[in-house]
Design a protein around this nucleic acid. Structure first.
Length: 580
RNA sequence: GCACCCAUAGCUCAGCUGGAUAGAGCGCUGCCCUCCGAAGGCAGAGGCCUGAGGUUCGAAUCCUCAUGGGUGCGCCA
């Protein structure tokens, strides 16, 4: 399926032949032998670094190895010509038939073209969003939701068994604050005057929750002390907030496989069990931490605490897991939660955090390393800020003034597709500019539009051909004879299509979905490029006078649309059939 | 003070487990629209890949140091 892998196999076979002949020594490490698209298309269709990689271990000159390899590679019927260039690159030009076969293969495979088995069914847990259940989600959560969902989809496409998971922080003090805030709204629902003092959430999104509570319990909690209602309102309010969050996620097109409650870890012995596991490894002890140098907290005083020896697993200092009053710190349930994930048998854990949680990466990795005896890797993606703009001007939001941009606001303004694609065009560790006007702008500079437009153009030309009586279903196009597709612009597009499986594997290996978005922009550019050439050279247009030629060209176009559709599918974006 | 992240064209950013002459869009300059969708197209100028060392046949990419920016740093999650 992956043309680059197929040719790489051919290169490896050629190396083996040379080894059998004694030209090359046996036992060479071949992992670094790569077959890649050349930087400059003039160099050919593919290039391999084999000779340069093998030169040192084989104790031969790279150019000599290259010449010997080149001679063997010409035996492969798919390889039309071979030449040695530069320090020892072997440039390959493939037989035109190889390119011409590609669209046919894609038409037969559909969106499965590019699927990879590299994951080998390994179980992966992607934990993302995990916003506190104290209010609606904002744009920062949105980037996390989109990136996490795309990573999950990407790994699924690359052959992993993926679970999307959300950790509900419903065990800390912030849900008590939520409960008190809802209590105020509840009182308000009875016409009382209330005051939102320091330490409560004044947002009006709690107004309906207060009313709902009134409907449920009547005046049972009115004029009662906190001890009578705190627990019940906490549960009620948390559930209401989670309903809100689930709805927002749904509006974005994100569906979690599991919501995992922090509270469920308390009183069940799970935290204790995780800590006991660490204690059994001699990683828990009583001790006193040094104050941080340089910036010493005002109220610093030496204190003996229960600590996790995270330094034994790469952290800078050991971390407290218990407060002085004997209750757990937030870190303890986090440890227990990850212990649970490990126990559930995942081969890989991925956490998506905001960049402001960067300080917790080392300790979390240390915990997972300790709990799994180094067997389960934890990859933590830190997401940088999203900066909002409106028409080029910074869009300031201030919680105090109440002009707080929620995830829902953004989705309502630009739609889930534009929001998702735009959020996936940048690396996670780069800050992202999000301009409300630009993400819906229909122009070359907006990649969302550019990629969608390419897909719509193909759909449009297929409709046009169908109107002219050409059979344009995938099965018919798969039967077309593509031997007439010899133009370099057509081959460039086919070459881009050949890169798709490779792109998927690189993106999946690095957990970087933005690579899919970058690839789609390039693929769209190749399609638009070919289309534009058709303006000057009528022979390159997709719809020709005779049906057979038209079908051949449409096969290439339709294959492109299939790959765009598959790529957008990973990003969670719906491909459109027309732009109107 | 320490840790982590970042630094690529005037601007916003890509850059493949290290590969050949570092790419795209915007902006700029010059051409082009009787043509399947010109909500544009083609061409051109524009770079010490922050700096200095190192590893390597080969470094924007890996390592060290420096500089500049972001984030965080014991009973908040």
């Amino acid at each position: 399926m992956n043309l680059f892998e197929q040719i790489r196999t051919s290169v490896l076979n050629a190396i083996e032949t040379l080894q059998d002949e004694g030209t090359l020594p046996a036992g060479l490490a071949l992992e670094n032998v790569a077959v890649e698209p050349p930087r400059d298309p003039a160099h050919g269709d593919m290039a391999t670094n084999a000779a340069m990689v093998l030169a040192k271990p084989a104790k031969q000159k790279p150019r000599d190895i290259a010449s010997a390899l080149a001679a063997k590679l010409t035996d492969d019927p798919r390889i039309a010509s071979v030449d040695v260039a530069g320090p020892g690159f072997i440039n390959l030009r493939l037989d035109a038939g190889v390119w011409q076969a590609l669209p046919t293969m894609i038409l037969k495979a559909g969106r499965a073209y590019g699927r990879s088995t590299m994951g080998q069914g390994r179980k992966v847990n992607v934990e993302f969003v995990s916003a506190n259940p104290t209010g609606p989600m904002h744009v920062g959560h949105m980037r996390g939701a989109i990136v996490g969902d795309a990573i999950a989809a990407l790994l699924d496409y690359a052959g992993h068994e993926v679970t999307r998971e959300y950790y509900i922080n419903d065990g800390g003090a912030q849900v008590d604050v939520l409960a008190r805030s809802v209590y105020l709204r509840y009182c308000e629902a009875f016409g009382r005057d209330v005051e939102f003092v320091e330490g409560t959430y004044p947002g009006d999104y709690l107004v309906p929750v207060g009313h709902a509570l009134k409907d449920k319990v009547g005046d049972a909690f009115l004029d009662k002390g906190e001890q009578f209602w705190l627990e019940e309102i906490r549960d009620f309010a948390t559930e209401a907030m989670m309903d809100l969050i689930r709805e927002d996620l749904k509006a974005l097109g994100v569906v979690m496989d599991r919501f995992y409650s922090e509270k469920s870890l308390y009183g069940t012995g799970q935290i204790e069990a995780a800590i006991e596991d660490l204690r059994g490894k001699d990683l828990i002890y009583r001790g006193t931490l040094e104050p941080p140098k340089g910036k010493k907290p005002e109220d610093w005083e030496p204190r003996e605490q229960t600590l996790f020896r995270s330094t034994a697993h790469g952290d800078d200092v050991d971390r407290p897991i218990m407060k002085s009053d004997g209750s757990w710190t937030y870190f303890a349930p986090d440890i227990a939660y990850h212990y649970d994930k490990i126990t559930r048998g995942y081969d890989l854990l991925i956490d998506i955090f905001g960049a402001d949680h960067g300080g917790y990466v080392k300790r979390m990795k240390a915990a997972v390393s300790a709990l799994s005896d180094g067997k389960v890797p934890l990859d933590i993606k830190l997401l940088q800020l999203v900066k909002l703009y409106k028409n080029g001007e910074p869009f300031k939001m201030s919680k105090r003034a109440g002009t707080f941009v929620t995830l829902r606001d953004v989705v309502d303004m630009v739609g889930p597709d534009a929001a998702r694609f735009t959020m996936l065009t940048r690396r996670n560790d780069a800050a992202l500019d999000f301009d409300f006007d630009k993400v819906v702008e229909q122009s070359r500079e907006n990649p969302v539009f550019y990629v969608q437009y390419a897909h719509a153009r193909v759909c449009s030309v297929l409709r046009k051909a169908a109107d002219a009586g050409v059979a344009t279903d995938d099965a018919s196009l798969a039967g077309a004879d593509l031997s007439g597709l010899t133009h370099e612009a057509e081959q460039a597009l086919a070459g881009k299509l050949a890169e798709w499986p490779r792109c998927v594997e690189i993106a999946a290996r690095t957990n970087e979905p933005h690579r899919i978005a970058t690839y789609l922009s390039e693929l769209a550019a190749a399609l638009h490029g070919l289309w534009n050439r058709g303006n000057d050279e009528p022979g390159l247009r997709f719809v020709q006078d005779d049906a057979a030629t038209t079908q051949a060209k449409l096969a290439l176009a339709r294959a492109t649309a299939i790959v765009i559709s598959a790529g957008l599918g990973i990003l969670g974006v719906t491909p459109v059939e027309e732009m109107r």
